[in-house]
Every structure is written in structure tokens, then in C-alpha cells.
Amino acid sequence: MFSFCTDPSTLDSWRWMACYLTTGKHMSLYWSFGTVLLLLAITAPVALAFGFAGATAARSRIAPLRWIGKGYTAIVRGVPDIAFFLFFVIALDQAFEYLRHKVKCPGWDQPIRQGNDFIVCAEAKLPLGNAAQWLHEVYGFSLAVLTFAIVFGAFAANVLFGAMRAVPRAQIETAEAYGLNQRQTFWRILVPQMWVYALPGLSNLWMVLIKATPLLFLLGVEDIVYWARELGGTKTPQFTDYPHVDWRMWYFLFLLIFYLGFTKLSETVLDRIMLRLTHGQATSGGEAQRKAA
């Protein structure tokens, strides 16, 4: 990075540190913070969509749909997320390739499972075998997002299901009295009104989502914990220009500060949103605002 970094063993401690903290590997660590934030930014709305679909299905009048919705939330929530992450990504990957295989290579006459191997035709591979490395990474990242979204979608479904039930019955009845049909009632009354009841649960879920990101490395994404462990481990002079003893402690301390800071920031933002949502609502929070005004 800096011009004086050619021979780190001769540097004084200040410059040594400057060089050390700007190695290519450290850049990967800094980038991985971006990866984690990006994952959170994408996962949150996708999980919410899954949750919404799950909650709507669980409320459905069609029994099979209701069973699917309820089964999804109950099963996924009953299982520790690590156990889920450990096999689900591979399963998801194989499921996609299997589907593509069925569509793209109908003439394939060999079995897909040959012993332990999972073999699909070349056109069905995801991404294609000769795709660039970044495509592989994007694909891996999308799988991670999808897995997170499915897991957290189940929790979100539960929150939204409760929130839909918490919307005062009188409001629904009023809508019916005005002649709104079921669909209109759902989209114009229920959905806008449920957020205030869903927000405490959803914000908790967001906090939980943040704290689940150290498990990303299980999904094959090189996240901050992966790089912190890699960088912090003892380095012998044979394999690096910057030998040091076990520094994992310091790297993890850095991560701890990051997570605490991020939590604090989220809390502040979510409190503000709550304040806006409660405005004019028939809840104790809304009542307090009315009195204060």
C-alpha cells in the first residue's frame, strides 16, 4: 500500500502497523463488512416477503394452504438455525440444479445420483462450470441470502400473523360496513394497520438477524468472522511478512464493538419509526402522543 512497505521487518512499530493494516488480506476484511451489511439489506425485505406470504397462507381459508403456512412457521422455528444452515445450502443448491436439469436436459440418460456424486448435465450447473469466479461468489451469496430469508421469514410470518390478528376487529367491521370486499379490506385496512402491532416483533427480529451474521461462514460466505479468525491466528515468519502471535482477541474485540455500535444505531432508528407509526393509533403509545400534543 505505502511505498515504505517493501521490507516490513525493518520498520518501526507505527509504520509496521500502517503497512500491516493495509495488506490485501485486511482489505478483504474491510470488504467483508460491506458484504455483511449488503446481506442484511437484501435479506430483511426478502425475509419480510417470505413472512408476509407465510402469514397470509396461515390465515387462508383454503385448508392445504393454511397447513403449508402453519407448517412452515412451526418447523423452521423449531430448529436451531445452525443445524439448518449446515445442510440447507447444499440442499438448496442441488434442488435448483435438479430443476434446471429436468428442464434443460430432458434427453439425459444417466442417473443424477451416481453413488455419492450429484451429477447434472453441464448446462444445468449453477453457475455454469466455466463462469467467472465472481459469478460463483454472487451465486453463493444469493444462496446465503435465500437461506437466511427462509429461516427469518418463518419468524416474520409469526410476527405478522399475530399483528394481523391484533388489528382491532372494529376497524375490519367498519370496512365491511362501507362495502369493501374481502380483498379491499385486506389490502386497504388490514395491511396498513398491522404494522404498528408488528413493529416491536419485527425490530426484535432485525436485532436477531444482525446477531446471526457470524454464522454466515457456515454458508460459504467469507464474512467478518472468517477474516477475523484468519487474520488473528498466529503467523509464523515463514509464511508472511508480518509475523505475530495469536491476535484473535483484538480482532474479535473489533467485531464486538462493531456489533454493539450497529445494535445501538438500529435501536435509535427503530425507536423513531415506532414513534411515527404510533401517531394517531388507538394504542397506549398513540394515546400518550395525543395527550402530549
Binding site: G24, M27, S28, E230, Q238, T240
Partner: peptide, 14 residues
Amino acid sequence: GAYPPYNFLNDDGE
């Protein structure tokens, strides 16, 4: 990428 000298990530992360 974590078992020197067989394989490891060098300072550039490769």
C-alpha cells in the same frame, strides 16, 4: 486456505 505450509492465504489474501 488455513493449513500452512500446504495451503494458506498470503498477505494479499490469495
